[in-house]
């Protein structure tokens, strides 16, 4: 199961606000897929600190960021 949010046309700081608001809603076994127009570098340290892991796919536009709880191996395995 995944939830997708598209922040690719939002002004800073709205993308990060939307992503941070979506994090607590990620259930066990699920992940969050974010569509963004550029890599959100300032988000990454916050994700680490909050106990989330991520993979960023930058090979096409919009780029995709997959976020899951670091201890949730099922969610990680579900990411294609």
């Amino acid at each position: 199961m995944k939830t997708t949010i598209d922040v690719s046309q939002l002004e800073p700081c709205e993308p990060m606000e939307r992503i941070l608001a979506a994090l607590p809603k990620i259930k066990t076994g699920e992940y969050l897929r974010v569509l963004h127009r550029m890599e959100p570098h300032p988000l990454y340290p916050i994700l680490t600190q909050q106990g989330y892991s991520w993979i960023t796919k930058t090979n096409k536009q919009p780029i995709e960021i997959y976020i899951w709880r670091s201890d949730d191996l099922v969610a990680k395995a579900n990411i294609v």
Binding site: E39, P45, T48, I55, K57, T58
Partner: peptide, 12 residues
């Protein structure tokens, strides 16, 4: 694909 692992301390 790009995975980064920044620490919060890296934000000056």
């Amino acid at each position: 694909m790009n995975t980064a692992n920044l620490a919060l301390q890296q934000t000056p």
